[in-house]
């Protein structure tokens, strides 16, 4: 948490005069944080329950393509495309979860199939139906569509994705901290056997969580596709990785059993402020990733230092 503020203060000092501190500058990094936060919050719940979903990035590519094709190629209204995309996502999420709990194989391996398969499916669908790998010109189809506005609207440069983030994060937080289901999630990640003995429906919890990660990947795909006006088989590459990073920077344990949604919110902010702050600071292109690495590492080291200090004083 402190890391987030320090990173923000760093860029406020470094590039505050270059637009970082303006409203547009704030809207800029909040939009990136919102995208990371949407997939990160639900990924955090899944990681807490002891599983990973590596198919999230490819799911963004595949569901985005389904949405774009149904709008541009099949001339369907936006809501039909959304139904198709979310229906597909939930079905694949169910299959992922079902296979994980039935086979007992690591979710890392099961969802790897989605990682390859969904990316390939997005490509194959696009090539088969349109002959290209980018389905564009959606803007003319969705102009004035009230359903599309839910995903594309913005107020004073603040994109609606920020509202979606707040909504997803709030639901995740309440579910995790204030519901029986939340206790079950912690239980699954702590010790699945012990949880099962206590009557926690481990299978159901995990299947629902896999369906949720697929659904938020689809949500992000819809926001991106409708907002940008095109779908590309390559969208969402590495997002599964970024979702996990966001959760872990926010303090979620990779081994499961511990984590918070609040932490994930700060994880998303840290990552986004650093990524975008470097553009405001106009760092040389060659040094961009080096700077990103140094600042992110410093931020998590600082967080860890503070956490250890706090733990020691408590003893």
């Amino acid at each position: 948490m402190l890391g987030t503020f320090v990173v923000w203060a760093l860029f406020a000092a470094w590039s505050g005069s270059r637009g970082f501190l303006t409203i547009a500058g704030t809207a800029n990094y909040l939009q990136i944080a919102a995208q990371l936060g949407i997939i990160g919050s639900v990924a955090a719940l899944l990681i807490i329950s002891g599983e990973f979903d590596l198919s999230m990035g490819s799911m963004i590519g595949a569901t985005g393509m389904i949405l774009a094709l149904s709008i541009a190629h099949f001339n369907q209204p936006v809501w039909v495309g959304l139904l198709a995309a979310f229906g597909f996502a939930l079905a694949v999420g169910f299959i992922n979860g079902y296979l994980v709990v039935r086979t007992g194989l690591p979710s890392f391996i099961i969802t790897l199939a989605g990682f390859f398969g969904l990316r390939g499916l997005a490509l194959a669908m696009a090539r088969l139906l349109t002959g290209t790998t980018v389905v564009g010109s959606l803007d003319s189809h969705i102009a004035g569509d009230p359903v599309a506005m839910l995903f594309t609207a913005s107020v004073d440069g603040f994109a609606v994705v920020i509202v979606w983030w707040a909504l997803v994060a709030a639901i995740c937080h309440i579910v995790l901290m204030r519901s029986q289901f939340g206790n079950w999630i912690f239980g699954c990640g702590g010790s699945a056997t012990a949880a099962r003995n206590l009557g926690v429906p481990v299978e159901r919890v995990k299947i629902i969580l896999f369906m949720s990660t697929a659904a938020v990947a689809c949500l992000l795909a819809c926001i991106q596709v409708l907002g940008v006006g095109s779908a590309d088989a390559n969208r969402g590459v590495q997002k599964e990785f970024e979702a996990i990073i966001t959760a872990v920077i926010g303090g979620t344990l990779l081994s499961g059993g511990y984590g918070t949604v609040i932490g994930t919110i700060f994880g998303a902010l840290t990552l986004a402020i650093t990524q975008q702050g470097l553009f405001f600071a106009a760092v040389d292109a060659e040094w961009y990733r080096v700077s990103l690495a140094v600042i992110l590492l410093s931020a998590v080291l600082l967080n860890q230092y503070v956490r250890l200090r706090a733990a020691r004083t408590r003893l």
């Binding site: 547009a24 500058g25 800029n28 939009q31 940008v228 590309d232 590495q238 975008q276 405001f280 106009a282």
Partner: peptide, 18 residues
């Protein structure tokens, strides 16, 4: 790479800072 919203916001940041 491969992230349209990321590109958009990077360019927006650049235009705003200069």
């Amino acid at each position: 790479t491969g992230d349209p919203v990321g590109v958009q916001n990077a360019v927006a940041a650049s235009l705003q800072s200069d």
